Amino acid sequence: MELPVAYQLLRTHLQARVRLSDDDFAVFQQYLQPLTLRKRQHLLQAGEPCTHLAFVTQGCLRCYSLNAQGQEHTLQFAPEDWWVSDMYSLLTQQPSALHIDALEDAQVLLLAQADMETVYARFPVFERYFRLLMQSRFVALQERVNAALSQSAGEKYQHFLRKYPGIAQRVPQHFIASYLGITPESLSRVRRQL
């Protein structure tokens, strides 16, 4: 039987990273819950505990925080083929400090935190996959902190373009400036110089 497109995308994503049998994926997909989000709709709001990992199969989501003055600080963009979540809240079950919303109409596959241990126990391949995913996230976080401390605005923007190809044409520039930690005016200058 042919898989729906969303599940095909996830299957391809997983198989590029770990060996996965048809039977393993057939059972794994039973733990996934499809969800459609409209543009600007929240997947998670600050103050709520994060209970799911979300794999984006269509559209683009954004993870951000708000400071005391109400300024947004974008932490991550999640286009198709990316996972998004508040990992701190997911793992500690503390209220989230982050918001996750859809920048475009989007579709995601949700994996509940409550099901993750069951999946790990039944299918060691998924424990390996999620360990690799967490390692990748840790490396990306370290790169991001280092870039914030040592790179120029132009270098940060060029790194952004490599990390998120095509996103610059899909999301408002002020969100990109927020991700880079610079003002929209500085981003405009950098873009003109490039």
Rank of each mutant, 00 (worst) to 15 (best):
M116A: 12
L132M: 12
C63E: 14
T92K: 08
A121R: 14
E2W: 08
C63G: 04
R144Q: 12
L161K: 10
V108T: 03
R162Y: 11
S152N: 06
F126S: 02
V27C: 08
A6S: 15
Q8W: 10
Y88I: 12
A114R: 13
G181Q: 04
A112Y: 07
V171R: 01
S188F: 05
Q58I: 01
R11E: 15
Q15T: 15
M134I: 14
L9G: 10
L90Q: 02
R192D: 08
A106T: 06
Y7M: 10
R170P: 02
Y120R: 03
R40Q: 14
T36M: 08
A97G: 13
Y157V: 08
H99Q: 14
S65Q: 15
A114K: 13
V139K: 04
R170Y: 01
L180Q: 00
A78S: 06
A147K: 00
L14G: 07
Q173S: 07
E72P: 02
L61D: 00
F28L: 14
A46M: 04
Q33V: 14
H99R: 04
F130R: 02
L35Q: 09
E117F: 04
F25D: 04
V108L: 02
L9Y: 08
L90R: 03
L133H: 10
T12S: 00
H159P: 06
R62C: 10
